[in-house]
Amino acid sequence: MMKKINFAVLNFPGSNCERDCFHVLTKILKQKCKYIWHDSSSISGVDCIVVPGGFSYGDYLRTGSIASQSKIAKKLKQFSLNGGSIIGICNGFQILTELKLLPGTLLRNKSLRFICKDVNLKVNNDSRFSNLYENNEIIKIPIAHAEGNFYADKITINKMKKNNQIIFSYSDSNGDLNSNINPNGSMLNIAGITNKSKNVIGMMPHPERASEKIFGNTDGLKLFKSVINFYSN
C-alpha cells in the first residue's frame, strides 16, 4: 500500500485547476489533502503544496504577480526554506517565478496564441518530483497556456544546466529537442524546472489532467507518486 503524505492545494481568486489536483490526490492516489485559501497565513502539517493553474487575479499586471503578494505566498517562502515540497503548475509556475522561488520568468507565447494540446516531454528523473520516471523517458501531458515561454538570462540558464534543474523539456516522440516542436518559444525547450535545492518545481504542462485512465492518459500520475515515494524512503 502506498504511503500517505499530507498535501495542500492553494486557492487564489481566479485559480481554476485546484479541484482537479485535489481530486487526483484524494480520489486516485488516496492521499490526505486540504485546500489553503490565499489570505490564510498558516501552513502546518503539510509535506507538499500544490500551487494550481488558472488565472489568479485575472492575470492583472503580469501573470502570477498579484498572487505573489498574498499572505500565503509569503508563508510559501518560509515553507520552501524549510525544505517542504512545492509543485507549481501553469499559473502556479508563474506565481513561483514572481515569488523568486524559481529562476526566470514566463513570457507570452511566441505565437501570441493560447495553446491547448497534448505535448511530448522528455524527463530528467533526478528530482523528488520525477524519480519514478525512467531517465529520458518520453511522456505525454497536456499544456493550456498563453504565457509559457520560459525566459532567463544566459548566466541563470547556465547555472540551471550545471545544477541539473531542467526536469521537463518539450521534445518530439524520439526525444529530440528541436525548435519545430517547441510550442511556445521557451528557451532550451524548457517545460519544467526546479529551484537550486530541488524542493520546488514549476511546470507549464498539467499532470493532473493526465492522471486517470478515463482520460486515456496517466503519464502525469508518476509525478505525484514520485513525491510520495520521496517521503517513503
Binding site: 499586471l61 504577480s65 503578494q69
Partner: peptide, 9 residues
C-alpha cells in the same frame, strides 16, 4: 522592485 516591474524581463 516589489511588484510593479519584473526586472528579469
Amino acid at each position: 522592485q516589489k511588484l510593479l516591474v519584473n526586472e528579469v524581463i
